[in-house]
Simulated assay, not measured.
Amino acid sequence: MKLVALTGAGISKPSGIPTFEEMGDLRQKLSRDYFESNPENFYDILLKMKEKIDMAMPNPAHIALAKYDIPIVTMNIDGLHKKALSKNVIEIHGNLEYVECKKCKKTFDFNIVKKRIYCDECESLLQPNVVLYGDMIPLYFNAVELIATTNELLVVGTSFYTSTSSDLVYIARNAGAKVTIINDRAEEKLPEYLKNIFGF
């Protein structure tokens, strides 16, 4: 029995990370257009998100997925699956670990943007390691490959606002996988569900 999890913002809500729906117009500001026209404001927003993320701890849903070593495709950029010590995690929207200068091919710890958002060598605008609205998803086909081979897809904390989540669920169903959706109270329901499957 091969399980794969597809996780969205709802899995991290009990860890204190608000969903996009709770953060007003944030969704519009996480776009390629907004980043290029308002880079200072954009990085202010990401720094505020990072403060919340750095304080957040994995909740029982993250921990259960790590405990049973379930491969994960996540739409979250909060890194909580890795904090929970999950080994196989595809972060299709990236993370807030670093920024890079595409011209110099240099990477910097994300916190450099507190001081400067331009490369100290060539003055190019530093790029976040985050997939923005309007971008291609570089790891999309890695996610498709993983999901297409599973017997059961656990969809956890996903609003289906983005077409990406709907597409991945469609791919799983098309490949004959069972799709189990646990969207509310995942921190209680997911550990229980997995315990019933694995028996411990």
Rank of each mutant, 00 (worst) to 15 (best):
M1G: 10
L3Q: 08
V4T: 15
G10Y: 00
K13A: 11
I17K: 05
P18E: 01
E21F: 10
M23D: 04
L26D: 12
D33P: 00
D33E: 14
F35P: 00
E36P: 04
S37Q: 12
K50M: 08
D54V: 00
M55N: 13
A61C: 08
A64S: 15
I70F: 03
D78P: 06
D78L: 03
K82T: 10
A84I: 06
S86E: 04
N88H: 14
N88S: 13
V89F: 13
G94R: 09
L96A: 09
Y98P: 01
E100A: 07
K102S: 15
K105F: 04
K106H: 06
T107S: 14
D109T: 11
N111L: 11
I112P: 03
I112H: 08
Y118R: 14
D120R: 13
C122L: 10
L125R: 03
Q127R: 15
Q127T: 12
V130D: 12
G134I: 02
M136K: 14
I137T: 15
N142Q: 15
A143V: 14
A143Y: 05
A148I: 06
L154E: 01
S159R: 05
Y161I: 02
Y161P: 00
S166H: 12
D167Q: 14
D167S: 14
D167T: 15
V169N: 12
A172P: 10
N174H: 10
A175Q: 10
G176Y: 10
G176T: 02
K178W: 00
I182K: 03
N183R: 02
L190E: 08
P191A: 12
F198G: 11
F198W: 12
G199R: 05
